[in-house]
Design a protein around this nucleic acid. Structure first.
Length: 586
RNA sequence: GGGCUCGUGGCUUAGCCAGGAUAUAGCGCUGGCCUUCUAAGCCAGACGCCUCGGGUUCGAAUCCCGACGGGCCCGCCA
């Protein structure tokens, strides 16, 4: 248990006792973190006003008089109807630092829950490179997964690969029928049309997307091509193993490129699950048979099957959720149902990180799961799309920024920064740090905004390395490392009487909150609180750094070095949860 | 047309779910701080009808209703 949690418990007990002593045993109250500077916890007395038939201020006054400043409670006061408490700084300092020293990078994490949480994220169609419009998905998903691990859960991350349907069949046709020359020419024309000299990338996703574009064009202009692709699609849906294998193979090649991109931003998924698998193993068909038997099932005149969801809170004309075509074949949604049923056999809790365009679909999916008798529901987590100042991102219109380009640009910018200030550093070291800093800037910039808020991508913001940015946080880590490097060996000293400066106490208070932040970011799925905390911690350190000298602090030196080291440990862990590296110098 | 969602200084943003004390932070702006532990930093300052209008409440950025503005969705596509 952390110091602040213990303190809150103690305050709660003392307030209860004080209320009991005036005969008010059933009065409820809350203990909250105070928004006022210099107050740690407060109990607003407004809600007690009616039950006690007294003014809030009078209640606060009376209770303050009944609670002695003892134990961890350093002071009690009554202001504006609030009963305010401050923690004994010695208890705070000793408690937090001993905890960090004892647990190291485990500080702030929760005991094993015994639960397995499955986080599905990214799952972009394997038909082209990942662009910034979708980049929120892997970054949010990966950060969430990292936080959930700290919350004590077994976590499995999973990518659902859509290797079924027209798009991948068109891609497959393109890969097998478009010549390299034709694809190269398309790539060149495309680059010209969007006004960029698109870099030659030796990545399968960037190479194959040209084949995809050519295939789409040819399909529109040449009826024979269209017929060929339609035929492939028919054979695919009839279960032709050869076509299915070919398509999957193509998707696999494309996926290699996507994996490379993900890996460049420190995202690695535990499992890739193929949509075609649910056709092959018959589970999509089982879903169809089970849904047909439900009370909500019906058929259109053409023979397509649906369930009516008007009793499930879905309004308007979207109540009919179709699960077979008129020819009886399954739809994406049917396979998605089979997929979720499968995931429920593998995990206790399911989280789907989805674009906001999936909202209705996700709701329909949940309703259908309910009809199938599922008592657990996936927890969707929606994010709004990232757009460009000139509008929605579209590969076709050339209004697009690829994630690979964003990362390259950020790394290049970081390299310039390092080069301008660290002439002493060897070239390969500079390159290595530039990558850590550039990638960190990108991840931080994207995860810092609440997911449901729409996000307009601007280069100057993505490449901002000051203030509320990834590099700001990494810089503090590097500073702490640098001090510790210069200090050499020191003895751990958590003597609270040596850490009494207001900047030290402020920093330790921020450190004390780490556990509750991880809980909010993980269990409550509010990942954006993590970068906010990282910034707060880094800022508290910078203020301490500017105001308090460490290396020539005499008898306080070891205690201050201990604080610096504890901050370094927590900072490194926060950065790890954000999927960012912690450079030791920069 | 219907449904969902967002609206907080010039720009970006926290707080909203569980209403409470002077509304959080960053960019930008003005001024100061490197012969001292990394200035990607620190300090000080200016900048707010929390989109608008009603309602609930002792009390609303927060809850409810309505308007306005942006986004998303409404396929036998995936």
């Amino acid at each position: 248990m952390s110091v602040m949690v213990d303190f809150e418990k103690e305050v709660r007990e003392k307030v209860s006792e004080a209320l009991a002593s005036i005969g008010a045993t059933d009065v409820t109250f809350v203990v909250e973190e105070s928004s006022v500077d210099g107050v740690d916890l407060s109990v607003p007395c407004f809600t007690m006003s009616k039950a006690l038939r007294k003014a809030p201020q009078a209640i606060a006054d009376e209770l303050a008089g009944l609670i002695p400043a003892a134990g961890a409670i350093h002071s009690v006061s009554s202001v504006n109807g609030y009963l305010n408490f401050n923690i004994d700084p010695a208890v705070l300092v000793k408690g937090v630092l001993d905890d960090i020293v004892a647990r190291g990078s485990d500080y702030g994490s929760m005991p094993a829950s015994g639960l397995t949480v499955n986080v599905e994220h990214t799952s972009t169609n394997p038909t082209g490179p990942i662009h910034v419009g979708r980049a929120r998905n892997p970054i949010i998903g990966d950060t969430l997964a990292r936080c959930l691990k700290k919350c004590g859960h077994e976590v499995v991350t999973e990518y659902y690969v859509n290797d079924v349907g027209k798009q991948v069949v068109v891609l497959t046709w393109g890969v097998n029928n478009v010549s390299d020359e034709e694809a190269a020419q398309e790539a060149e024309e495309h680059a010209k049309s969007i006004g960029q000299n698109e870099k030659e990338r030796d990545k399968t996703d960037h190479r194959l997307v040209a084949n995809y574009r050519v295939a789409n064009k040819r399909m529109e202009s040449d009826p024979a091509v269209k017929e060929c692709i339609s035929d492939m699609l028919r054979r695919f849906e009839d279960g032709d193993a050869e076509i299915i294998d070919t398509v999957r193979h193509t998707a696999e090649i494309m996926l290699d490129g996507l994996r490379e991109t993900l890996s460049s931003i420190n995202v690695a998924l535990d499992r890739y699950t193929w949509e075609s698998g649910y056709i092959a193993d018959g589970s999509a068909r089982d879903v169809v048979e089970r849904l047909k038997k439900s009370d909500y099932a019906g058929q259109t005149d053409d023979g397509a099957w649906f369930v009516d969801l008007k009793d499930f809170g879905i309004q308007g004309k979207n109540t009919k959720f179709t699960f077979t075509r008129s020819d009886g074949t399954t739809l994406y949604t049917t396979r998605d149902l089979a997929y979720h049923l499968d995931k429920f056999t593998r995990a206790d809790r399911l989280i789907d990180v989805l674009g906001e365009d999936q909202k209705l679909g996700s709701k329909q999916l949940c309703s259908a799961l309910e009809i199938l008798g599922n008592d657990r529901m996936p927890e969707p987590m929606f994010y709004a799309f990232v757009s460009l100042p000139e509008g929605k991102m579209s590969t076709r219109k050339g209004v697009v920024v690829y994630l690979d380009d964003l990362v390259d640009e950020a790394v290049a910018r970081a390299y310039e920064e390092i080069k301008s200030r660290r002439s002493d550093m060897p070239e390969d070291k500079m390159r290595e740090i530039a990558r850590i800093v550039g990638v960190g800037a990108v991840r931080y910039n994207i995860v810092r905004v609440q997911p449901e808020k729409q996000f307009i991508f601007k280069w100057e913001e993505a490449l901002n390395f000051d203030g509320n940015s990834g590099p700001y946080v990494q810089y503090v880590h590097a500073r702490a490392c640098s001090m510790l490097r210069k200090a050499g060996d020191f003895t751990v000293d958590t003597d609270a009487s040596k850490l009494t400066d207001p900047y030290e106490l402020k920093l330790i208070k921020v450190l004390s909150r780490y556990g509750s932040v991880l809980k909010a970011a993980g269990d409550e799925k509010r990942v954006h609180v993590l970068p906010a905390y990282a910034h707060e911690l880094a800022a508290a350190f910078n203020q301490f750094y500017a105001a308090v000298s460490v290396l020539d602090a005499g008898s306080r030196k070891d205690a201050r070095l201990t604080l610096v080291d504890c901050t370094r440990v927590v900072l490194a862990d926060v950065l790890h949860c954000l999927g960012m590296g912690s450079p030791e110098e920069m």
